[in-house]
Amino acid sequence: MKPEKPGTRINGDRLSLLTKVARLYHEQGIRQPEIAERLTISQSRVSRLLKEAVARGIVRTVVVPPVGVYPELEDALQARYQLRDVVVADSGGQDEMSLLNAIGGAGAAYLETTLHADDRVGISSWSASLLAVVDAMAPRPTRSARSVVQVIGGVGHASVQVKATRLTERLASVTGAEPVFLPAPGLVANKVVRDSLFTDLPIASVVSAWQDLTVLLVGIGSLRPSPLLKESGNTLSEEEMAGLRELGAVGDVCLRFFDADGVLVESPLNDRVLGLSVDELRRVPRRVAVAGGERKVETIRAALRGQWVDVLITDNWTAKALLES
């Protein structure tokens, strides 16, 4: 006998049979051949009855997220900002170290899961969040990226520029990729100097590698730098910061500053950046940002509005704040 259509009424005996088969299989873990033998029906009929039980709503699949996992926040952020993907990490607190540990671990897990052997990964200058990600990654037994390319020179003290190189080197090491370094500062005196450096053979070869990037890994900078960044010298001067604020800037990705709506700010700094251009940045198929914390909520929101990135790794506190406005 063929099962009736789910929308039709059926008698109590059939409902009883559907329920019995469903409970035996789903609650008691009895296999279909054993159910068929116990009820003296064919195994194919057991299979049909189980499917009908699902269709009629007798059996319902429910996913129960464990504590510390936030699928609803991830889905809401993805829908609101039209993102490719969102990962929300569980942070035990809102202090800087708790946030960095949370998003660092989440970023590491995301990259370890999603990178492929042929990926060409661009990485921006040194930042606390990117450092946390790379430090949390474990070396892979097989290659998980083809190359790791530095997309902007170091900013600030010479020692910090060395850290940017080490960040590239570390990510290349754990993924088994070839590191491609940008042997230059991220910000130079003027456009003439920048254009001249772009023609230098070692730098020109790096610029050429930017055209083939498949993944971009960035932090999201705020005009309110963290104490760690301030102490390290990995920031612009106070005069430069003040000028950007006057123009309406709230943050940056790869030293490309944008306003609260995510629109690029036309600043003299744009001609001084030795790094990925805005057009080159937007052409990268997958652009992953790792950022969180109360200090950066406005900046992250602006970056998402402007579609500077399409994957966000953040923490549960920041995710909630991004959805409140």
Rank of each mutant, 00 (worst) to 15 (best):
V206I: 13
E324M: 09
F257H: 12
D195A: 03
A117P: 07
A249T: 07
L171W: 07
V21D: 12
K51C: 05
A289P: 01
L323Q: 09
T114K: 09
A321S: 10
R9S: 11
D261A: 05
Q150Y: 06
R287A: 04
V297D: 03
S237G: 14
Y81T: 00
G107A: 09
V133M: 11
S98F: 03
A109N: 06
S127N: 14
P66H: 04
R45C: 01
L276G: 00
W308E: 06
L130Q: 15
V133I: 10
R283G: 00
A108W: 12
A55L: 09
L244F: 06
G29Y: 12
R245W: 11
P3Y: 12
I220E: 10
N270G: 01
A302Q: 05
L115W: 12
L322C: 03
R272A: 02
D200T: 10
V215E: 11
E178C: 05
R301I: 09
A55R: 13
I313R: 02
P65A: 03
T61E: 14
L24F: 14
V284K: 06
I10P: 00
L167H: 07
K320S: 04
L99P: 00
D195C: 01
P227F: 08
G292T: 00
E4Y: 07
A22G: 06
E238C: 01
V193P: 02
R84D: 13
V69M: 03
R146K: 15
F181N: 01
I123D: 09
S277D: 08
G92P: 02
Q161N: 10
V155F: 10
V64Y: 11
Q32W: 08
D261G: 04
S173V: 09
T235V: 14
R272T: 13
R295D: 10
D90P: 00
N234T: 11
A303C: 02
I30M: 15
D212G: 06
R287L: 04
V174S: 11
M97L: 13
E246L: 07
V188I: 11
L182D: 02
A106E: 07
E294A: 13
A209S: 15
R45A: 08
W210P: 04
V54Y: 07
P139T: 08
G293W: 11
P183T: 13
K230C: 05
L236E: 06
D90Q: 06
V297E: 05
S44A: 15
G233V: 04
E27D: 15
L115C: 10
A36V: 14
M241V: 09
L269S: 03
D252Q: 10
V290K: 07
A319V: 00
V59A: 15
V250D: 00
L15P: 03
A102F: 09
G306K: 07
M241C: 04
A303S: 06
L255P: 00
Q32I: 14
D261R: 07
V188N: 03
Q161V: 05
D85L: 03
R56C: 11
D261Y: 04
